[in-house]
């Protein structure tokens, strides 16, 4: 792949991403009142989307073969537990990630 080819690919990806991101804001601009259905979705969708993103992050977890997703499970429990306890975002992420890294590098090799 030449530099030009790569550059053009990046440009197209950037343009499409930007257009998709701006589309809802262009369609429902400030002049009209946002339809009640859209407002409803914007109220309830974040909860579902965050659940979906968690599933998305864990999509590659190996359940059937060893280690059967045990490192992921333990690390997730640590993150949720620590966060319920201390409620400190950075702490939960840092300790959770460290635990996961230790588990897959040292325990479940």
């Amino acid at each position: 792949m030449s530099n030009l080819h790569a550059g053009m690919l990046v440009a197209i990806i950037a343009l499409v991403t930007l257009l998709l991101r701006a589309l809802p804001f262009i369609v429902f601009n400030g002049k009209r009142k946002t339809p009640a259905f859209i407002t409803y979705l914007s109220n309830v969708l974040p909860y579902a989307i965050m659940g979906m993103l968690v599933v998305y992050c864990l999509r590659g977890t190996e359940i059937i073969m060893p280690p059967h997703g045990i490192p992921e499970l333990i690390a997730c429990i640590v993150v949720v537990g620590l966060h319920l306890w201390k409620r400190n975002t950075l702490l939960s992420i840092a300790i959770g990630t460290a635990v996961y890294m230790m588990l897959i590098q040292l325990v479940f090799i």
Binding site: V80, G96, I104
Partner: peptide, 18 residues
């Protein structure tokens, strides 16, 4: 290896907050 779990952790934290 495994440092990408930080993204999972971020989304989990936000999920718990929500």
């Amino acid at each position: 290896a495994g440092i990408d779990f930080s993204m999972t952790a971020l989304f989990l934290v936000v999920f718990v907050e929500q």
